[in-house]
């Protein structure tokens, strides 16, 4: 069991003996429809979806920590920023789960309890637990792309399992849910987003820059600054 393959060897063998967290994650990674269908059985793990998402958010935050470095965030604030980022990730996820639930209900006529959607879609975040490795130099970027694809497949599998939709139905449900969330963020959700941004900057101690163009500008200006130092 302490094998380097992780939890899987025994988990596969003991699937019927009651499911633990490890089994659930392993099932999600394998895109196992049955695991998603039995998601309600994890009675003690009602917060399972949230937990997986939180860990995934933390992992993803570490992979993208270079943005904090470029912004010259100091160590303590750096750690706090990572935690905050993970919490935001979870918050974003919950909104998305709700909007996906709404799309399923009004778009596809499938009524799904929010709790169920949260658990299933949260579990589907399992591949993102490995986002951490996205911080690896050079290999990290393709790795993150791979994980995104993997996660998308897990979402589709999860939606299929809990809503009984076909593959395309599940796919569109996911995409539309995401679109609804985007629209909400840019309209009614603006104040919340602004608050989030303010909080992020407050914790980081600097006005965080995250888009590619601005990051490049920051790197450029830093170089000129150092060039200036050199001439002194």
């Amino acid at each position: 069991m302490t094998d380097f393959w992780g939890v899987e060897l025994l988990a596969v063998a003991s699937q019927d003996a009651g499911l633990g967290l490890g089994d659930a994650i392993w099932g999600a990674l394998r895109l196992d429809v049955e695991i998603f269908q039995r998601v309600e059985e994890f009675a003690p793990d009602r917060r399972l979806g949230i937990l997986v998402t939180l860990l995934a958010g933390l992992s993803r935050g570490i992979a993208q920590a270079f943005i904090l470095f470029i912004n010259r965030v100091q160590p303590l604030r750096f750690v706090l920023s990572l935690l905050l980022e993970a919490i935001f990730f979870v918050a974003g996820f919950i909104f998305w789960a709700v909007s996906t639930g709404l799309v399923a209900r009004f778009g596809f006529g499938v009524s799904l309890p929010v709790d169920l959607v949260t658990r299933a879609l949260g579990l589907a975040h399992a591949p993102q637990l490995f986002s951490l490795l996205g911080a690896l130099p050079y290999l990290g970027v393709p790795w993150l792309t791979l994980l995104s694809l993997w996660t998308a497949l897990a979402f589709v599998t999860g939606m299929r399992a809990i809503a009984g939709l076909d593959v395309w139905g599940a796919f569109w449900c996911m995409v539309l849910g995401w679109l609804v969330l985007q629209v909400l963020q840019r309209t009614a959700g603006q104040p919340v987003m602004n608050f989030g941004r303010w909080l992020r900057d407050y914790v980081a101690g600097v006005a965080l820059v995250s888009n590619r163009q601005r990051l490049q500008e920051l790197l450029q200006s830093g170089q000129e600054h150092q060039g200036g130092d050199r001439r002194e």
Partner: peptide, 23 residues
């Protein structure tokens, strides 16, 4: 070497190296 070739870390590492060579 992978850091230097990475599109995210490369610009930082390579600037640092340029600074070392410059100095």
């Amino acid at each position: 070497v992978a850091v230097s070739a990475d599109q995210r870390y490369g610009p930082i590492y390579n600037q640092g190296m340029a600074q070392v060579i410059y100095d």
